[in-house]
Design a protein around this nucleic acid. Structure first.
Lengths: 141, 141
DNA sequence: CTTTCTGCAAAAGGTTTGCAGTTAG
DNA sequence: CTAACTGCAAACCTTTTGCAGAAAG
């Protein structure tokens, strides 16, 4: 979800209220386009002269993730706004091991491959969330 | 590395000492075959009447991971012993979202696919560590 | 015997919980 | 107006650091 407005609309549709903290966190994530920890989000708000309690940030992130409007990216240790229009199915990340920057993408081929592999191992694949690490263009120097 | 002995041998070869704590942590991981947190490892040792300071466990795990004798699996929130003979290259995990149990595997097809995708996104893929979630046989009831 | 490793104490971070007060709709 | 949400204080859990003593080889 690149559009903050779309995300807010979806919140509303699901019966959640559109509040100042939710707008603020979405706004920061949309600007950043890189993984941010809850406290980093708080710091970036402070730079704008805005304040949010860290507990509120945790709760907003939890909500956004539950709706797939944001993702917790474990390799990068932080949260990113979802950059795909899809709210479910396939969310994949390449994460730069140097700088932590990442790209989100989807791939039917990978889903098929993983689903098959999962079956061989006795697993049923459901949502395809995956992360793997590499080195981004900027850090390849 | 299924064999604890092989792991110990590799430690020695790399110039590290073979100590009681290192034996103990490797032993627990080998038995468990599921992700364990540092404190879980401590608890399992207690059940055997053995004691390790948690700081020591953190340090042993750090060493094992640096040699790819163990992996930190983020989706599962814990450490597992490496079940592949390979010490580098491709380490992939399917993690059960219900119980956290997992399987490690390698796949040339996936590596090729990911490498290509990475290039399209301006990344150079290096080591292929990836995790994705599904539901294991036992939890599919 | 010496270098590496462990244990301890303490600090530093990150995350969660309960509750009272505020706000969106 | 009322249910949903936020802020605050405090607790809790995880991880890290520095240093003195123990143990591997």
């Amino acid at each position: 979800m690149v559009e903050t407005r779309k995300a807010l609309k979806l919140l509303r549709e699901q019966g959640y209220r559109i509040t100042t903290p939710r707008r603020q966190v979405l706004g920061i994530l949309a600007e950043a386009q890189r993984p941010l920890s809850p406290y980093e989000i708080q710091d970036m708000l402070k730079e704008k002269g805005e304040y949010l309690n860290h507990v509120t940030i945790y709760r907003v992130l939890e909500l956004l993730c539950s709706l797939n409007l944001a993702h917790k990216v474990l390799l990068a240790g932080g949260f990113v706004i979802c950059s795909l229009g899809e709210s479910r199915g396939c969310h994949r990340f390449v994460v730069c091991r140097e700088c932590g920057r990442l790209k989100e993408y989807a791939s039917e081929a990978l889903c098929a491959e993983e689903t098959e592999m999962a079956e061989q191992l006795g697993f049923r694949a459901e949502q395809h969330f995956s992360e793997f690490s590499g080195v981004c263009a900027t850090c390849q120097k």
